[in-house]
Design a protein around this nucleic acid. Structure first.
Length: 427
RNA sequence: GGAGGAGUGACCGAGCGGUCGAAGGUGGCGGUCUUGAAAACCGCUGUUCCCGUGAGGGGACCGGGGGUUCGAAUCCCUCCUCCUCCGCCA
């Protein structure tokens, strides 16, 4: 959410900003102006009346104490009370409308974000590692995994449906090793490990920006105000919803493993084979609560921490700065980490690291206060995948495959696999 | 699921329906005293919104929401959370 004052005073800038995100006209800014003005009018009036009632109440108390008659004032105030009640009802309505407009307004991209309408305008910031030269035609992870007996898509669709997978044997073990490996790495860099609920309420989803606009992307529990987490960003960022943190503690860093559940509405036909796009996948997430002055340094640091995982695993990747048209709803700036997939001969997203500035903090009411300073201010929130575990498994299978279809375990993971160095066909 | 109890400021804790934004205490900050520290004593110590260039003025907030009343932290309803006991249960 943007500051109301900022929107009011920069309405043309907001209009251009929406256009740069391919959202021209998506939010009724004229209605915003009108509602905002009406709200001001009502607030001024209702407060004037309340002030009158407060003074009169004191007067009535004084009269009663002196055993004098107060019926005139009392009847007059009854009338005022009615008017106040009407105005308050109107105010609730205007507030609701105004807020629902504000909740659909995206964040303003940072000035360093490349301008452009789609992913073609994204900027490659750096490319790390060389894609391996294969002496044979590399297979897809789906083929490799199925042949090895560690991935079972057919049975997954029997027990649940499409876009689910069963991971078995050494594959399951590798996935669990990856989770531990990532969490250990991040913990060593000062991220506190947290294991949050895997369901969140609608207030939390609103706080981080999944609601109200992206309800169709979420799985909701029937009969409950609960949603399956689409990312650990939601529960972890909402840890401090409606709290004021002490400024000295910033930045506060968390890492969290959760499964992630996404409806993938609107992506029918995309990545239908394999683990790339699933309704459920594992992810280790990094979340930071930062001081506004240093949040962009923290974004570089967070991105580097996610990259470190790819480096330790020896996976070739590149870092891409998303352009204005490709930027997520709440992000002011975002780097995608893309890992090389030999079977697709392309880089695929494996992490997304964003600075939301005060966009989420304002929705979720997350403030900080410096020791000497009187005023509190909104923190900046950041998060990034460190990494998407399912896609990391994909990358390992494909990048570490051998001609015979077996998989070498990256050196860094061997201790997490009890010394196992390869995956061969399951017995 | 059944039966009880409780939710007040950073924390503890008081609060006959009217001057309560809320006593008292703890903690924190500043000061006096002291070579220094402690103790003692004195003072300060919530959030948020609106109007105003400013000084300042005003509104709201005692778990959330609603109601009664001229007036609610105080009365009523409802929801939520926590605690205790019973039942069920991984």
């Amino acid at each position: 959410m943007l500051s109301r004052d900022f929107v009011r005073e920069n309405i043309e800038f907001i209009r251009e900003m929406l256009a740069s995100r391919n959202m021209a006209g998506a939010v009724d800014l004229d209605a915003f102006i009108q509602l905002d003005a009406e709200r001001k009018r009502i607030v001024a009036e209702v407060e004037k009346l309340r002030n009158r009632r407060n003074t009169a109440s004191e007067e009535i108390a004084r009269l009663k104490k002196a055993k004098e008659d107060a019926t005139d004032l009392t009847t007059m105030m009854r009338q005022v009370g009615e008017t106040i009640k009407e105005l308050e009802a109107k105010l609730v309505e205007v507030d609701r409308d105004l807020r629902s407009l504000e909740l659909t307004l995206p964040n303003v991209p940072h000035e360093s974000v490349p301008k452009g309408r789609d992913e073609h305008a994204n900027a490659v910031v750096r490319t790390v590692g060389e894609p391996r030269a294969f002496a044979f035609e590399p297979q897809s992870h789906a083929d490799l995994g199925t042949a090895l007996g560690i991935l079972d898509f057919e049975r997954a669709s029997k027990i649940t449906g499409s876009r689910f997978a069963v991971v078995r044997g050494a594959g399951a073990r590798l996935e669990r090793a990856l989770i531990n490996f990532m969490l250990d790495m991040h913990r060593a860099k000062g991220y506190e490990e947290v294991l949050p609920p895997f369901m969140v309420n609608s207030a939390s989803c609103t706080g981080t920006g999944q609601l109200p606009k992206f309800a169709e992307d979420l799985f909701k529990l029937e009969g409950w105000d609960y949603y399956l987490v689409p990312t650990a960003e939601v529960p972890v960022t909402n840890l401090f919803r409606n709290e004021t943190l002490s400024g000295e503690k910033l930045p506060i860093k968390f890492c969290a493993y959760t499964p992630c559940f996404r409806s993938e509405a609107g992506s029918w036909g995309k990545d239908t084979r394999g683990l790339i796009r699933q309704h459920q996948f594992n992810k280790v997430e990094l979340v930071k609560f930062a001081h506004p002055d240093s949040s962009y340094d923290e974004l570089e640091g967070l991105t580097a921490d996610a990259e470190a995982v790819l480096q330790r695993l020896g996976l070739p990747y590149r870092v891409v700065a998303l352009c204005t048209g490709d930027l997520g709803f709440g992000a002011a700036k975002c780097y995608d980490l893309e890992v090389w997939l030999p079977s697709q001969k392309t880089y695929r997203e494996i992490s997304s690291c964003s600075n939301f500035q005060d966009f989420q903090a304002r929705r979720a009411g997350i403030r900080f206060k410096q020791a000497g300073m009187g005023k509190s201010d909104f923190v900046h929130t950041l998060n990034g995948s460190g990494l998407a575990v399912g896609r990391t498994l994909v990358a390992i299978l494909e990048n570490y495959q051998r001609e015979d279809g077996s998989i070498a375990i990256p050196e860094a993971l061997v201790p997490f696999m009890d010394g196992v160095r390869e995956i061969t066909k399951q017995p």
